[in-house]
């Protein structure tokens, strides 16, 4: 039984790490902020999700349910904050790209004029 659990953990954690590696390579290699964000969010969401999923059985065996609940809570919080922050950063990057390009569409609609 433990062997099955261990194999399960190893496979999922390895898969999670793969996502992190891909995300990091994307962060370093992709050309513009929006594409880099795209790569990073994958690492955050799926990569961390796989890690947590892989570790939950170990936590249950070792320390009971509370540790597992904590890990899942961490994953949910990261989901929430990374999603929202990626949105914000994408927003800023998009407007910055628009501002830099004189042929950009009307930007007053986005309201990125800095407040006085």
């Amino acid at each position: 039984m433990t062997l099955v659990l261990d194999i399960f953990t190893v496979v999922l954690v390895a898969a999670g790490l793969l996502f992190f590696i891909v995300g990091t390579v994307g962060l370093l290699r992709l050309p513009d902020p929006l594409a880099r964000l795209h790569a990073l969010t994958k690492a955050d969401n799926i990569g961390l999700g796989l890690l947590v999923l892989g570790l939950v059985p170990q936590a249950v065996v070792a320390g009971g349910g509370l540790e597992a609940v904590k890990m899942v809570a961490i994953w949910l919080l990261v989901q929430l904050s990374s999603g929202a922050v990626s949105q914000l950063m994408g927003d800023v990057a998009y407007h910055a790209a628009m501002t830099a390009d004189p042929a950009a569409p009307d930007r007053s609609a986005h309201g990125e004029e800095p407040a006085p």
Partner: peptide
């Protein structure tokens, strides 16, 4: 934060 708040930030703040 000088810009008007965006929907994402508003949502994040309400939950977090």
């Amino acid at each position: 934060w000088p810009a008007p708040p965006s929907g994402a930030l508003d949502f994040l703040a309400r939950v977090l």
